[in-house]
Design a protein around this nucleic acid. Structure first.
Lengths: 228, 228
DNA sequence: CGGGGTCTTGACCGTCATCAAGTTGTGTGG
DNA sequence: CCACACAACTTGATGACGGTCAAGACCCCG
């Protein structure tokens, strides 16, 4: 039970909780960390994994935040996704066997490494868990669709709602963004200047209050309406 | 063996072939079609499934082509994906239990319906097949990234390469697009006029030869270079 | 206090959306 | 088989949104 409690504290909102619990049950005399995964502490800007490197592990963000990005032949950075505490990354590498993106920490972070072969071993020993995995990957397929909204205001509104719900929970009005305006721009296909200007406009419109990276959402419904 | 041959003819390039074969092997005295799925013939513009309706089946496109789209609150259509012969759709609905997009046929098409509960039943009876499914969904996560290229020319170049490889095979230079300029625009976040103009520019630049919906790629490398 | 990264704001310009008109293509009924 | 109607496509003119370049303010950390 000590182990179960240690899971609950750090991992209570982790998408991988069902698998860690299953690991505990399956080998209740082992510590799930040594059996199943180990933790990596990342300083800000530290690299977690690199594009084109061999895929070996999924990663669960325990605390902090990371970004997954690619650099195109013109040197432009494209951010494919942000991952916050409790979220799991690496699914996209399963098919090709290589990481599609490089991943670096936006803030000091702790990340749980999940060796894929051991993970598959667990699933094969308890096949009903596979449906959990399929559901999680399906969720990633369904999400993040707002990037193709037409205007900068719409995209940013949707972004703010998405990030705040993922960091602070749905309905939260106060959020501190872990990424720069540059990063937001590279994610939304806009420039840092446009992000800055658009935040100012949203603020003038009375939808948010911004002070650097800390935001307060004045009206969630109005922001949703703008984002659609 | 008659059944196995009947699979091979229509389905030799289908992503679901491994599962259909497994079904055959597992119940070799049944016809896989009646056991596992049935076919639907769709006329052009006929609806396959509708957004927000209950998810019950995956669909494999046997012949023809379909588009998956959503209509936002302003009445603007956003195309999330095209699916061509051999490709499977519906994964995005697994997590929520409802279809995320509506799907209609672009041309007269034949589609194989795969009831999800029966499919899961098959997987549970042969858990090693789950890794096939996970790999297929992972592939969808990794693909279709070119939509966020910056310029209209880059997006269209990448689109042409993607579609031609999926319809006619990698390296093919002749392709007939099944969708309208409108559809391409709604997929790439551009207008039909911009698509038309950009095709003209690519033609003037000597990269392609266009005659309505039939395209010939003059130089695949140059097009790739443009698309990055 | 100084330095580098981050953020904001302004001026100008290019790309693509919008509106419009004309042409081509397709399908249907006479 | 032709004629008509409507959808799809092309091309042009104009304008708005966001990119680019630049300058200055702010902030964190040494």
């Amino acid at each position: 039970m000590a182990v179960a409690n240690s899971i609950k504290q750090a991992c209570s909102h982790c998408q991988f909780l069902p698998f860690c619990v299953a690991t505990d049950n399956h080998n209740c005399n082992h510590d799930h960390r040594t059996l199943f995964s180990h933790k990596r502490t990342l300083a800000r800007n530290e690299v977690l994994c690199t594009r084109h490197h061999k895929f070996q592990s999924l990663f669960a963000v325990e605390s902090g935040a990371v970004k997954a990005y690619q650099v195109d032949s013109n040197g432009h950075e494209h951010i494919k996704a942000f991952y916050f505490a409790g979220e799991v990354l690496g699914y996209r590498a399963i098919h090709s066997g290589f990481y599609i993106s490089s991943v670096v920490a936006l803030t000091d972070s702790v990340v749980c490494e999940i060796p894929y072969d051991r993970f598959i071993g667990l699933l094969n020993s308890q096949p009903d868990l596979y449906q959990n995995l399929v559901s999680l990957i399906s969720k990633q397929l369904a999400g993040g669709c707002y990037v193709d909204a037409s205007s900068a205001e719409q995209r940013l509104a949707a972004f703010i709602l998405d990030v705040s719900s993922r960091i602070s929970g749905v309905g939260a009005t106060q959020v501190t963004l872990p990424m720069t305006r540059q990063d937001i721009g590279h994610y939304l296909g806009l420039t840092a200047e446009t992000i800055s200007r658009t935040i100012s406009r949203l603020e003038q419109a009375g939808l948010i209050v911004a002070d650097g990276r800390s935001l307060r959402i004045v009206s969630i419904p109005k922001l949703q309406q703008l984002a659609e």
